[in-house]
Computed example of a mutant assay.
Amino acid sequence: MTKIYLGFDDTDVVGAKIGTGRLVRMFERKLPDGARLWGALRHQLLIDPRIPFTSHNSPACAVVEVADEALVPELVARAVAHIAELASDGSDPGLCVARETDDLSEIVEFGLSCTYEIETQERARAVAARAGVRLLGLGGTNDGIIGALAAVGLTAYGWSGRFLEYGRLRRLADPISVAALAEAGIESVAIDREACALAPDALVSTGGWLSPRLWNGRAVAPVERVNGRLVAIGKRPRDAEVAD
């Protein structure tokens, strides 16, 4: 199986019911036979008043596994149609599509730069062209190509972002054992002062909202001990952010 990265950005406007993160999650339903969603990730870019963004400047990336790379043109066509169907009027959507086997080193650098610098469409197009990846502006000012390329770069980097979708993520029990999380493909890592190894039968409270991070290319749940309980960080109400 080969991983294909599809970066989406700027598909919504203020007050939209479907934010970019949710739009990316919904793309799973549009995947062709022979493709499966490995995960969907939200990334955080620079917040700066000089940057036009809807609410949080947070692009998203769908990581899709394909048995045959001949499916990539179909994935691109379906992603373009998905954006055309669900992006908000007045948005400036962008799409980036890359294979994990591409040389993504400059795209990774671009993605990291977007977390602390203001980047431009011109540089995004130049970086994508040198890497030989698809970068499509799909409406409005096309500013979404910047975040779409950054989302691919940060996902390929492997140490950025949090999962919006990952297997049974949204159907996991609360609390849930460390062993059960591992069976779901999610590693539990203690981040408190002691940073102890966690026993397989230890229970982790998620508050109904588990937010694994992408660490070393894997889904990891950071856990801390609070009043004697193991608590996964990142609890938020499910409707707290339209992008999710």
Score class of each variant (00 low, 15 high):
residue 124 A to V: 00
residue 241 E to W: 13
residue 193 R to N: 04
residue 190 A to K: 06
residue 60 A to R: 07
residue 109 E to I: 01
residue 65 E to M: 10
residue 128 A to D: 06
residue 147 G to S: 09
residue 227 N to S: 12
residue 174 D to Q: 11
residue 24 V to T: 15
residue 114 C to K: 05
residue 211 S to A: 13
residue 157 Y to S: 07
residue 241 E to G: 09
residue 180 A to P: 01
residue 53 F to M: 07
residue 175 P to Y: 04
residue 79 A to S: 13
residue 114 C to N: 11
residue 156 A to D: 12
residue 15 G to H: 03
residue 33 D to I: 04
residue 211 S to F: 01
residue 130 R to Y: 00
residue 76 V to L: 11
residue 183 E to N: 09
residue 202 A to H: 00
residue 150 A to Y: 03
residue 180 A to V: 04
residue 204 V to K: 05
residue 108 V to C: 08
residue 138 L to A: 09
residue 134 R to N: 07
residue 226 V to M: 11
residue 84 A to Y: 07
residue 216 N to E: 13
residue 11 T to D: 11
residue 90 G to L: 05
residue 31 L to T: 09
residue 68 D to Q: 05
residue 93 P to N: 04
residue 164 L to T: 02
residue 205 S to Q: 07
residue 89 D to E: 15
residue 205 S to E: 10
residue 26 M to C: 00
residue 201 D to L: 03
residue 116 Y to D: 08
residue 32 P to G: 13
residue 39 G to R: 15
residue 99 R to C: 12
residue 214 L to A: 02
residue 155 T to C: 11
residue 108 V to Q: 11
residue 129 A to P: 02
residue 10 D to I: 12
residue 235 K to F: 09
residue 66 V to A: 01
residue 25 R to T: 13
residue 180 A to K: 14
residue 33 D to S: 07
residue 180 A to Q: 14
residue 185 G to E: 09
residue 111 G to N: 05
residue 171 R to V: 04
residue 9 D to Y: 08
residue 243 A to K: 03
residue 54 T to A: 01
residue 174 D to R: 06
residue 98 A to D: 02
residue 63 V to C: 01
residue 25 R to P: 00
residue 113 S to Q: 09
residue 164 L to F: 09
residue 15 G to M: 06
residue 118 I to T: 15
residue 165 E to Y: 05
residue 242 V to R: 14
residue 10 D to Q: 10
residue 41 L to Q: 06
residue 124 A to I: 02
residue 186 I to S: 05
residue 10 D to F: 06
residue 186 I to A: 08
residue 85 E to A: 12
residue 191 I to Q: 02
residue 193 R to L: 13
residue 231 V to P: 01
residue 5 Y to K: 06
residue 16 A to K: 00
residue 223 V to D: 02
residue 36 R to H: 09
residue 163 F to Y: 15
residue 54 T to P: 00
residue 130 R to A: 10
residue 127 V to A: 03
residue 187 E to D: 13
residue 138 L to W: 10
residue 216 N to L: 12
residue 161 G to W: 10
residue 56 H to D: 10
residue 239 D to W: 05
residue 158 G to Q: 07
residue 58 S to I: 02
residue 156 A to Q: 09
residue 132 G to H: 11
residue 79 A to N: 10
residue 150 A to D: 04
residue 121 Q to T: 07
residue 213 R to K: 10
residue 94 G to E: 05
residue 62 A to P: 04
residue 96 C to A: 15
residue 68 D to L: 02
residue 108 V to R: 15
residue 243 A to Y: 03
residue 111 G to H: 06
residue 108 V to D: 08
residue 200 P to F: 06
residue 243 A to W: 02
residue 52 P to I: 08
residue 210 L to K: 06
residue 5 Y to G: 05
residue 115 T to M: 13
